[in-house]
Amino acid sequence: MALSRRAFGVGLLGAGVVGTGGYFAVKDRPELQGLLGSRTTLSGFIGGEKEAFLADRDVVSALGAYGLTVNGRVAGSVEMVREQALLSQSPQFLWPSSSIMVDIARQNGVKIRNDRVVLNTPVVVYSWQPVVDGLMKSGLVTVTNEGHHQLDLKALLDAVLAGTDWSKLGVNSLYGRARIVSTDPNRSNSGFMFAGLALSLFSGNVATADDLAASGGKVQAVFRNMGFKSPSSGKLFDQYLAGGLGGEPMIVGYENQLVEWILADPSRWNRIKASPGAKPVVLYPRPTVYSAHPLIVVDENANRLVEALVSPKLQELAWTRHGFRGPLGTATGNADSAIGSLLPAEVDAVLPMPDAGLMLSLLMMLAS
């Protein structure tokens, strides 16, 4: 039976009310913004260790549900908050790898509208099985009941400063003096944090200005011993994998880097584990420092990116695909079987970093 004109009009009115209500329901829920068809493109600088995360298709899709497209350009964490050549490009957000960078950005005139730690990963040392086997004999590396390797970093740094040969540390597969390499602390966060950790280890506690005067020279000597220092944590990790046992025996990096590399190709990892060659090993310095990843909002629109990144979906992807822990340093999903028991559930031996003013003074010392 045909509808009357009046009934048809009432039907259209009802549909309009439902449609309008649906529009406002979606509009008020940031995780559904993408359904409206509008996208906001946000541009800013990110630490290189987060490049693969933002390139992940599922991450791109999850951000799209928030109506966001993120254009993250890679820069060193220290550079992005200090270099006017970068800041003059008017980034809408900065995503460095240390909470201290928030204070340094503010000191450099960045008008911060908001900041929030959205990811965490501890600083670790990467080495190879033959090196670890030797260091276990000399007592510098121990294994926990859960099978995780802990490193006495202070003892290792003392050996480096003393010019100790690898063979004296139980590592007969390497020639010459023991060494460890990090990134450039004046450009990249992993080197920056390693410098702060080393200073605190030489000082016996979280370093103060007096400790810088007393032990800063030791940190300076450790970094001079490294030779060339990469400007990027990602590039150094690639050098480690490409250089192998002889090229890069020990480097400073982030826990998530090996996890991300394994999950990118689990079958490759299984082949490496089954092969007779040297295998990568992650060592947890005891104590270590946490690399917090704060999203610094410069443009108000980037507040939506903070909301997206702390959502359960993106937090789960950060952990299960890329090895980033949540804001509190804990797992935010079920670990893939490829990494299994590779990671400790929690990293409990953690030191705070020295304050921003002290770290800037240390950077000046290391740049000379």
Rank of each mutant, 00 (worst) to 15 (best):
V171N: 04
L140M: 01
L156N: 01
H149P: 07
L135W: 07
G170Y: 02
H148S: 11
V124R: 03
D115P: 02
V143S: 14
K137L: 13
D165P: 15
G134C: 02
H149R: 12
Q150F: 08
G163W: 12
V124I: 10
T144H: 03
V124K: 01
Q150C: 09
W166M: 07
T164N: 10
R116W: 00
S127H: 11
D165M: 15
Q150E: 13
V131P: 10
K154F: 12
Q150A: 08
K168T: 07
K137G: 08
V131H: 12
L169G: 02
K154S: 03
T164P: 10
D133Y: 08
H149V: 06
K137W: 08
D152V: 07
G134V: 00
V132K: 14
V141Y: 00
S138V: 03
G134S: 02
A162P: 08
V124H: 02
V123F: 07
D165K: 15
H149A: 10
D158K: 13
V124G: 00
T144D: 05
G163E: 07
L151R: 01
K168Y: 07
T164Y: 06
W166K: 05
K168A: 11
S138R: 02
L161D: 13
D152N: 14
L153A: 11
V141H: 00
K154D: 05
M136P: 03
W166D: 10
H149S: 11
D115E: 07
L156S: 01
L151V: 02
M136A: 06
R116M: 05
T121L: 08
L153T: 06
D115C: 03
H148W: 10
